[in-house]
């Protein structure tokens, strides 16, 4: 366990989601679910981020923003696709403006299903992401 996985900081970006998953991410931060008790803090700055939460099936105008944000996050980083739109495009998959899932733009490590995602499922997904973060860190140490 390193400090990053004890207190992971998250960045949330709405890549053309319907809001449902975004408000559930916020709900997970508020008293009833309170992910801050695990040391998880929502930051606004990609350079502070360990876990990147993306909602929505990326659209035309968002592709660049998403790629930019991903590139700005320092290694090791974990991308969590929150909700079915981020996982596969969901109900909007056939829409002309949707590229169909976050994994078409950036590599995704954890997929959290749900429409909209339940805060419990989200917490579980973040816990899963922590394990991957830890593995990635170990792999990085070895390479040194």
């Amino acid at each position: 366990m390193t400090s990053a996985s004890k207190s992971p900081w998250i960045l949330h970006y709405n890549a053309s989601s319907c809001n449902g998953c975004d408000i559930e991410i916020l709900a997970a931060l508020t008293p009833v679910y309170d992910v801050e008790r695990f040391g998880i803090i929502n930051t606004g700055n990609p350079a502070h981020t360990d876990i990147f939460l993306v909602t929505g099936g990326v659209n035309e105008q968002n592709k660049v923003v998403l790629k930019n944000l991903y590139d700005q996050i320092p290694e090791p980083k974990v991308v969590v696709a929150v909700g079915i739109c981020a996982s596969s495009g969901g109900v909007f998959r056939d829409c002309y403006n949707i590229s169909g899932g976050v994994d078409t733009i950036i590599p995704v490590d954890v997929y959290v299903p749900g429409c909209s995602v339940r805060p419990e499922a989200l917490i579980e997904g973040i816990v899963k992401a922590l394990g991957i973060l830890e593995q990635k860190r170990a792999a990085m140490e070895e390479r040194k």
Partner: peptide, 29 residues
Amino acid sequence: GYVHRGLESLVDRREYQDFVYLAERICGI
């Protein structure tokens, strides 16, 4: 335009009774 998905274009590909579930996914709030 950061959240534009083009949901209205799906209306001619889904039956009107099923489109209710798409219509409510216009917005999560």
